[in-house]
Amino acid sequence: MLSIQNFSKSYKGDKKAVDNLSLEVIAGDIYGFIGHNGAGKTTTLRAVVGVLDFEEGDIYIDGVSIKNDPVGCKKKIAYIPDNPDLYEHLTGIQYLSFIGDIYEVSKADRELLTKKYADLFEITQNLGDNISSYSHGMKQKLAIIAALIHKPRLLILDEPFVGLDPKAAFTLKTIMTELCGEGGAIFFSTHVLDVAEKLCNKIAIIKGGKLIESGSTEVVKGNQSLEDVFMELIEE
């Protein structure tokens, strides 16, 4: 579903933020992407969703290069950045309608899915308020709902659990598992290694822009905890 091939990115001629990274995410995968701050996780995720321009390597969504057909690829993806900067001048429901229109979600689907996810994240009653009045966690919930109402096949999440209350975090994990059970895929970055260990069937570890380990969670961690493996790998 997602194929990253020899992807490299450097900013303004400086050192490479990501260096020759390749990995495959297939349908049904919950793929965790871990690494220390500044390792290149966000750069990779932003390139995957077509937010970041890049020259080296290529990224394919269902076999189609995001460089050749960005609009077609983006229709299959939903992205939630590490900081949910949303349109503060809109109300929650106006933002969801905006996203519904952009992704051409039918009236029936948007009404059904907006209600379903807004109820699940317990934010329905706040949808009429301006986003500027929302807390960080509420904005994160709204960004997640906006990502889900257009039924993406591939979900790209950057630190999705930051700011969520425990119940919302649990809800998100359940939704992630359901989405992958229905043939979708998720590629997400996290610093919460416990979550990655329990939730992901595959793990990739990035250090200094280079992929140093990737594969099935069981193989990557072996008999150790993911935290031990991670600490060993980044200190090498």
Partner: peptide, 22 residues
């Protein structure tokens, strides 16, 4: 201190084109 009513109830949602939404 933002005005929040927090009393929204789901109703009908209209659909429009991406251009109109933008």
């Amino acid at each position: 201190a933002k005005h929040t009513k927090s009393n929204y109830k789901m109703g009908s949602l209209n659909q429009t084109s991406p251009f109109m939404a933008l």
